[in-house]
Computed example of a mutant assay.
Amino acid sequence: MFHRAWQLCGKWCRWSSPFIHLLTLTVVTFGVLAPLICHRLLHSYFYLRRWHLNPMSRKFLEQNQQEGQDALHYFEKMQMPNASEASSSDAFQPLLLITIITVQRQNDFHYVLQVASHFHRLLQKCGVHCQNYRMLLCNVESDPSSHQDVRLLSSLFPTVSRDRTGENPDPGLNQFEKEKQDYVFCLEQSLLVYSPEYILLVED
Protein backbone atom coordinates (compact mmCIF):
# COMPACT_ATOMS: atom_id res chain seq x y z
CA MET A 1 0.00 0.00 0.00
CA PHE A 2 2.86 2.34 0.82
CA HIS A 3 4.45 1.59 -2.53
CA ARG A 4 1.16 2.31 -4.29
CA ALA A 5 0.81 5.64 -2.49
CA TRP A 6 4.39 6.57 -3.39
CA GLN A 7 3.74 5.85 -7.05
CA LEU A 8 0.58 7.95 -6.97
CA CYS A 9 2.44 10.83 -5.30
CA GLY A 10 5.21 10.61 -7.86
CA LYS A 11 2.66 10.72 -10.65
CA TRP A 12 1.04 13.89 -9.32
CA CYS A 13 4.28 15.61 -8.33
CA ARG A 14 6.07 15.37 -11.67
CA TRP A 15 6.76 18.75 -13.30
CA SER A 16 4.62 17.75 -16.26
CA SER A 17 1.67 17.12 -13.94
CA PRO A 18 -1.31 19.53 -14.33
CA PHE A 19 -1.53 19.68 -10.54
CA ILE A 20 2.02 21.07 -10.29
CA HIS A 21 1.28 23.55 -13.07
CA LEU A 22 -1.85 24.76 -11.26
CA LEU A 23 -0.05 24.98 -7.92
CA THR A 24 2.85 26.91 -9.44
CA LEU A 25 0.50 29.30 -11.23
CA THR A 26 -1.43 29.92 -8.00
CA VAL A 27 1.69 30.60 -5.95
CA VAL A 28 3.19 32.92 -8.57
CA THR A 29 -0.09 34.78 -9.11
CA PHE A 30 -1.17 35.32 -5.51
CA GLY A 31 2.22 35.18 -3.85
CA VAL A 32 4.25 37.36 -6.21
CA LEU A 33 2.37 39.13 -9.00
CA ALA A 34 -0.79 40.20 -7.14
CA PRO A 35 1.09 41.76 -4.17
CA LEU A 36 3.44 43.60 -6.53
CA ILE A 37 0.62 44.94 -8.70
CA CYS A 38 -2.06 45.61 -6.06
CA HIS A 39 -0.15 46.84 -3.02
CA ARG A 40 -1.03 50.46 -3.89
CA LEU A 41 -4.75 49.82 -4.49
CA LEU A 42 -6.67 51.12 -1.47
CA HIS A 43 -9.42 48.47 -1.43
CA SER A 44 -7.22 45.57 -2.42
CA TYR A 45 -6.53 42.64 -0.09
CA PHE A 46 -2.83 43.19 -0.77
CA TYR A 47 -2.88 46.91 0.08
CA LEU A 48 0.06 47.80 2.35
CA ARG A 49 -1.43 50.26 4.81
CA ARG A 50 1.81 51.07 6.60
CA TRP A 51 3.46 52.06 3.34
CA HIS A 52 0.70 54.07 1.70
CA LEU A 53 -2.13 55.05 4.07
CA ASN A 54 -0.31 57.66 6.14
CA PRO A 55 1.20 59.48 3.13
CA MET A 56 -2.19 59.29 1.40
CA SER A 57 -3.93 60.78 4.45
CA ARG A 58 -1.42 63.62 4.64
CA LYS A 59 -1.79 64.29 0.93
CA PHE A 60 -5.59 64.32 1.22
CA LEU A 61 -5.51 66.74 4.16
CA GLU A 62 -3.10 69.04 2.33
CA GLN A 63 -5.30 68.98 -0.76
CA ASN A 64 -8.41 69.65 1.33
CA GLN A 65 -6.68 72.54 3.07
CA GLN A 66 -5.62 74.02 -0.27
CA GLU A 67 -9.17 73.74 -1.61
CA GLY A 68 -10.38 75.53 1.51
CA GLN A 69 -7.94 78.38 0.93
CA ASP A 70 -8.97 78.57 -2.73
CA ALA A 71 -12.63 78.83 -1.71
CA LEU A 72 -11.76 81.55 0.81
CA HIS A 73 -9.94 83.59 -1.84
CA TYR A 74 -12.80 82.98 -4.29
CA PHE A 75 -15.31 84.70 -2.03
CA GLU A 76 -12.90 87.37 -0.79
CA LYS A 77 -12.34 88.54 -4.37
CA MET A 78 -16.04 88.70 -5.18
CA GLN A 79 -18.00 91.92 -5.09
CA MET A 80 -20.18 91.30 -2.05
CA PRO A 81 -23.68 92.78 -2.12
CA ASN A 82 -25.30 93.66 1.18
CA ALA A 83 -27.41 90.57 1.72
CA SER A 84 -29.42 90.82 4.91
CA GLU A 85 -30.72 88.01 7.05
CA ALA A 86 -33.20 85.84 5.22
CA SER A 87 -36.72 87.16 5.56
CA SER A 88 -40.06 85.51 4.86
CA SER A 89 -41.21 88.77 3.30
CA ASP A 90 -39.31 87.97 0.10
CA ALA A 91 -41.89 87.53 -2.65
CA PHE A 92 -39.61 85.45 -4.87
CA GLN A 93 -40.39 81.73 -4.90
CA PRO A 94 -37.48 79.75 -6.38
CA LEU A 95 -37.87 76.54 -8.29
CA LEU A 96 -34.96 75.00 -6.37
CA LEU A 97 -33.51 76.11 -3.06
CA ILE A 98 -30.08 74.76 -2.10
CA THR A 99 -29.81 74.88 1.69
CA ILE A 100 -26.34 74.33 3.12
CA ILE A 101 -26.34 73.14 6.74
CA THR A 102 -23.17 74.16 8.51
CA VAL A 103 -21.42 74.17 11.87
CA GLN A 104 -18.06 75.62 12.83
CA ARG A 105 -15.25 73.18 12.07
CA GLN A 106 -11.49 73.51 11.71
CA ASN A 107 -10.85 76.97 10.32
CA ASP A 108 -8.07 75.90 7.97
CA PHE A 109 -10.33 73.72 5.82
CA HIS A 110 -13.30 76.12 5.33
CA TYR A 111 -15.73 73.32 4.53
CA VAL A 112 -18.78 75.53 4.09
CA LEU A 113 -16.81 77.81 1.77
CA GLN A 114 -15.81 74.82 -0.33
CA VAL A 115 -19.40 73.62 -0.65
CA ALA A 116 -20.79 77.09 -1.30
CA SER A 117 -18.13 77.91 -3.91
CA HIS A 118 -18.84 74.69 -5.83
CA PHE A 119 -22.57 75.37 -5.96
CA HIS A 120 -22.01 79.04 -6.78
CA ARG A 121 -19.74 78.15 -9.70
CA LEU A 122 -22.29 75.63 -10.98
CA LEU A 123 -25.09 78.20 -10.84
CA GLN A 124 -22.93 80.82 -12.54
CA LYS A 125 -22.03 78.34 -15.27
CA CYS A 126 -25.67 77.35 -15.70
CA GLY A 127 -26.62 80.98 -16.36
CA VAL A 128 -30.19 81.92 -17.26
CA HIS A 129 -31.36 78.31 -17.03
CA CYS A 130 -30.77 78.45 -13.26
CA GLN A 131 -32.03 81.95 -12.56
CA ASN A 132 -34.86 80.45 -10.49
CA TYR A 133 -32.39 78.69 -8.19
CA ARG A 134 -31.29 80.13 -4.87
CA MET A 135 -28.86 79.26 -2.08
CA LEU A 136 -29.55 79.53 1.65
CA LEU A 137 -27.11 79.07 4.53
CA CYS A 138 -28.43 77.38 7.65
CA ASN A 139 -26.07 77.98 10.56
CA VAL A 140 -26.72 75.44 13.34
CA GLU A 141 -23.65 76.29 15.39
CA SER A 142 -24.57 76.53 19.08
CA ASP A 143 -23.14 80.07 19.08
CA PRO A 144 -23.94 81.33 15.55
CA SER A 145 -21.76 84.43 15.87
CA SER A 146 -18.65 82.27 16.30
CA HIS A 147 -18.95 80.79 12.79
CA GLN A 148 -16.47 82.98 10.92
CA ASP A 149 -17.07 81.53 7.45
CA VAL A 150 -20.81 82.16 7.71
CA ARG A 151 -20.10 85.78 8.64
CA LEU A 152 -18.16 86.07 5.39
CA LEU A 153 -20.87 84.42 3.29
CA SER A 154 -23.77 86.25 4.94
CA SER A 155 -22.98 89.30 2.80
CA LEU A 156 -23.62 87.23 -0.31
CA PHE A 157 -26.22 84.60 0.61
CA PRO A 158 -29.32 84.74 2.81
CA THR A 159 -28.67 83.13 6.18
CA VAL A 160 -30.73 81.61 8.95
CA SER A 161 -29.31 80.61 12.32
CA ARG A 162 -30.37 78.28 15.08
CA ASP A 163 -29.37 80.19 18.17
CA ARG A 164 -28.99 77.92 21.18
CA THR A 165 -26.99 80.39 23.24
CA GLY A 166 -27.99 80.13 26.88
CA GLU A 167 -29.75 76.80 26.46
CA ASN A 168 -28.76 73.94 28.72
CA PRO A 169 -27.40 71.13 26.53
CA ASP A 170 -29.22 67.84 26.88
CA PRO A 171 -26.65 65.24 28.03
CA GLY A 172 -28.84 62.46 26.65
CA LEU A 173 -28.88 63.94 23.14
CA ASN A 174 -26.55 61.98 20.89
CA GLN A 175 -24.94 63.30 17.73
CA PHE A 176 -27.40 61.56 15.41
CA GLU A 177 -30.41 63.06 17.18
CA LYS A 178 -28.83 66.52 17.14
CA GLU A 179 -28.16 66.30 13.41
CA LYS A 180 -31.73 65.13 12.82
CA GLN A 181 -33.08 68.14 14.72
CA ASP A 182 -30.77 70.43 12.74
CA TYR A 183 -32.07 69.02 9.46
CA VAL A 184 -35.67 69.52 10.57
CA PHE A 185 -34.93 73.10 11.61
CA CYS A 186 -33.22 73.94 8.31
CA LEU A 187 -35.98 72.33 6.28
CA GLU A 188 -38.64 74.30 8.16
CA GLN A 189 -36.70 77.54 7.72
CA SER A 190 -36.24 76.86 4.00
CA LEU A 191 -39.99 76.47 3.57
CA LEU A 192 -40.70 79.49 5.74
CA VAL A 193 -38.28 81.84 4.01
CA TYR A 194 -38.76 80.90 0.35
CA SER A 195 -41.43 78.18 0.07
CA PRO A 196 -39.62 76.71 -2.95
CA GLU A 197 -40.96 73.98 -5.17
CA TYR A 198 -37.90 71.81 -4.49
CA ILE A 199 -35.32 71.83 -1.69
CA LEU A 200 -31.84 70.32 -1.75
CA LEU A 201 -30.41 69.95 1.76
CA VAL A 202 -26.64 69.48 1.88
CA GLU A 203 -24.18 69.40 4.76
CA ASP A 204 -20.77 70.99 4.63
Rank of each mutant, 00 (worst) to 15 (best):
Q124N: 10
L122V: 00
H118M: 06
Y74L: 06
R105P: 03
S89V: 10
T99H: 13
Y111A: 09
Q79I: 03
D70H: 02
L72S: 07
A116R: 00
Q66P: 03
G68V: 11
F109H: 06
G68E: 12
C126Q: 05
G68I: 06
Q104N: 15
F75C: 05
Y133G: 11
Q104Y: 10
T102R: 08
S88E: 15
V112H: 01
S89E: 13
R134G: 07
Q124R: 12
Q106P: 01
Q69G: 00
H120R: 00
N64H: 15
M78D: 00
F109L: 08
L113W: 02
R121N: 09
E76F: 03
Q65W: 14
R121Y: 01
L97E: 01
F75E: 11
M78W: 00
N132Q: 13
L97P: 03
P94K: 00
A71H: 02
T99Y: 13
A116T: 06
Q66W: 11
L123Y: 09
K77A: 01
Q106F: 09
H73N: 03
Q93V: 08
H73S: 03
H129L: 14
S84E: 04
Q114T: 00
T99Q: 07
A83I: 14
S84H: 10
Y133F: 13
Q66N: 10
N107W: 01
K125P: 08
S89K: 13
L123I: 10
A116L: 05
H110L: 04
V115S: 02
L113E: 04
A71C: 09
C130L: 12
M80C: 14
H110K: 15
Q65F: 13
L95Y: 08
L113N: 02
V128S: 05
E76V: 02
V112N: 03
E67S: 03
L96M: 01
S117E: 13
F119V: 07
D90H: 08
S117C: 15
T99I: 14
